[in-house]
Design a binder for these strands. Structure first.
Lengths: 186, 186
DNA sequence: GGATATGATTGCAATATGCAAGCAAATAGC
DNA sequence: GCTATTTGCTTGCATATTGCAATCATATCC
């Protein structure tokens, strides 16, 4: 199929002893990469739907989904919920408003807050995208039993928790910390 | 904490019957979103390491990891392996070459192919990033038993497979298809 | 040899993103 | 009351990223 001139195989292990790494990362078995692949494919398929059909950017869709789940939410809360930065959210909201999918109203007790909520049209669009989302979810879980799904749920909750910890501590914190309760076998 | 004027709750279910969706997407329980959150946090932490330290973009790091796993690989194969498009990979390689982390050589039997491999420096950098990656992996799996990890491995393989199918069929295919072997409970 | 196909790169326009600066409302200090 | 200061949000602008057409080089087919 191609001209694989494999002459550049990885150097002998002893050569890079200064790093302390005694094995190289294997992408295919690295958990975050596997999670990424799955979610990224789904995001692509979903984006190919809502993009052309509704003119939504990815950030706008994410924002829409968050707002739908918590109507009246403020920009700052959207940031926290969606892992988006303040500017992206602000622009996403503007896009949603321009498209007629959402409206902002200033908060009642504190008028600095912009309370976002979906319009009639917004709910309708969200409903359609939801439908596709749910279909995709069904496709993904189609070959998995209920018991397995329950296990997966627990495991993902643990991973989510651990990932939040890693994020909070940053790479420096991860590097500094003693190796935890188990040895790594990635 | 803020002025949550919750007056805009979701409209009555019967109002949007035309879509056929009888429930809205719940982000927090939607599998792809949960996978995304975990992998995105990890990518952020890792990017905060290799970005400032080595001047690598995200695409360049991805490419580097793929090349490290399969030295002498061609651009097109990198695309398939990493879910990147041809242009991104081409530019990522240029960046790697400019930084001295990789070199391209034309393929032996077919000189159209560009056989990419890491340089000495590239391997060294990859080793350091690998080390952090493995630490993160260890942190994530720290609260999970070996048995659970084995189950997770199987489940992710199934999900990966299913996601590839969804991607191949596209949103239209997913919408068209009969609802599969199980009802959705997202 | 000429036509066609394939792998890879580049230029350019469109988009997205990061960040400084700004505005508006609320709060604190005097 | 009246100025800081803080907080929430938005905007403008400079800088990346990205998508796509066009291009180049090589290989293959007729």
């Amino acid at each position: 199929m191609q001209a694989n001139s494999n002459q550049g195989s990885r150097p002998a292990k002893a050569g890079t002893a200064e790093t302390g790494a005694d094995e190289w990362l294997q992408l295919e078995t690295w958990l975050p990469y596997r999670l990424f692949r799955i979610s990224s494919r789904v995001a692509d398929v979903l984006g190919a739907f809502y993009g052309p059909k509704y003119g939504l950017s990815r950030a706008a869709w994410r924002t829409m989904a968050i707002v739908a789940n918590r109507p009246g939410i403020s920009v700052k809360e959207i940031c926290q919920a969606g892992g988006l930065d303040q500017f992206a959210v602000s622009r996403a909201i503007r896009q949603l408003v321009e498209l007629g999918f959402a409206q902002r109203q200033t908060g009642k007790s504190d008028r600095r807050y912009a309370a976002i909520e979906l319009s009639e049209t917004g709910w309708s669009a969200y409903g359609e995208i939801s439908q596709l989302s749910r279909r995709i979810h069904a496709e993904l879980t189609g070959s998995i039993t209920d018991e397995e799904l329950a296990v997966l749920d627990v495991l993902l909750a643990k991973l989510d928790n651990a990932s939040a910890g890693v994020l909070a501590r940053g790479w420096h914190g991860v590097m500094d910390s003693k190796v935890g309760g188990r040895s790594d076998r990635s």
